[in-house]
């Protein structure tokens, strides 16, 4: 019960912050929550199940294009586009996972990386239809949900918050369910899990599809909330970012993703306001942070303060 209370309190605090802070921070928070949703999906695969993927940009971008292309070419409204995006991410995860999960560990990392690179190149190759690297602006008619324009600060934030809240509560329920224990068992010792009658391949594929759906929903939401879809979101840096958020916040903690995403955003913001060599400062802080908390910030909390942290 305590875990649910903490999560609801965090959601309430985020909601209050988004509604009370000035518009600039409302928009930033909306962006952070969308990326945190992506990272939360990544965390299910990596943090809980131990699937070290370097190809999640492919799921994010699949969701983004599955939502944005129908909106651009055929004028789909936001609600079906969002569902298409979620399905797009899940289907991409199903197709690539069925092959990539034949491998494990670093081989899995490299196979997902290469699939994602091929996908990013395919977006460029079919530029006549996808807009290539330049991308395209989402028509404003498609950016309406329940009659409200997602281009305005408050509705945009509320949409992002709802998506994040849904993701967070579902992932909390998931990791506390029986299947959640299966996930952790696969991470800790796959052989033992197999002896307990678990089919590792099927279970991991299921996790990857859930993770892909999450990432796809986030990609679709990014396009619809911020009005743009482009090839850069399929690049390797969008595979590294969710990993960085999760490791920074704490892998295998439900709240680590949002903490990491927020921290990286405001760290960049702060560093670029004090020096033009902001990249150096960001790098330095990352090194110092990881020396202080090798298991991420919430990993440190879990080790020192609250062992039951989900």
């Amino acid at each position: 019960m305590r875990a649910w209370a903490v999560h609801l309190a965090v959601l309430a605090a985020l909601l209050a912050a988004g509604l009370l802070l000035p518009g600039y921070h409302t928009t930033n928070l909306a962006r952070i929550l969308v990326l945190a949703t992506f990272a939360a999906g990544y965390n299910l695969a990596f943090g809980y199940t131990g699937l070290l993927s370097l190809g999640h940009a492919m799921f994010f971008a699949a969701g983004m294009y599955a939502a944005a292309l129908p909106a651009w070419h055929w004028g789909w409204p936001a609600a079906p586009a969002l569902l298409a995006g979620t399905a797009g991410g899940a289907l991409m995860a199903l197709a690539t996972g069925a092959l990539a999960l034949r491998t494990a560990g670093v081989s899995f990392m490299i196979v997902t990386l290469m699939f994602a690179q091929a996908f990013a190149l395919a977006i460029l190759y079919f530029n006549g239809w996808t807009g290539g690297d330049e991308g395209f602006v989402i028509p404003s008619a498609s950016r309406h949900l329940f009659g409200t324009s997602l281009a305005a600060d408050t509705p945009r934030f509320l949409a992002a918050w709802s998506l994040f809240a849904l993701g967070l509560l579902l992932s909390l329920a998931l990791v506390r369910s029986r299947f959640g224990r299966v996930m952790v068992a696969l991470r800790e010792n796959e052989e033992r899990a197999r002896m307990l009658g678990i089919n590792p391949f099927a279970a991991k594929l299921k996790v990857l599809v859930i993770s892909g759906a999450w990432s796809g929903a986030a990609g679709a939401a990014y396009a619809l909330l911020f009005g743009y879809a482009g090839g850069s979101f399929a690049g390797i840096q969008y595979s590294i970012l969710p990993m960085l958020y999760v490791l920074l916040g704490g892998a295998g903690t439900t709240l680590g993703a949002v903490l990491g995403a927020g921290l990286m955003f405001y760290l960049t913001e702060f560093a670029s306001s004090v020096t033009s060599a902001w990249l150096f400062l960001v790098g330095l802080v990352l090194v110092v942070l990881v020396l202080f908390a090798p298991k991420g910030i919430l990993g440190w909390v879990r080790a020192r303060l609250w062992r039951e942290l989900p």
Partner: peptide, 11 residues
Amino acid sequence: FSHVVMGAAPR
């Protein structure tokens, strides 16, 4: 760079 223009113009 045109992809940056494209991404920022809606905002």
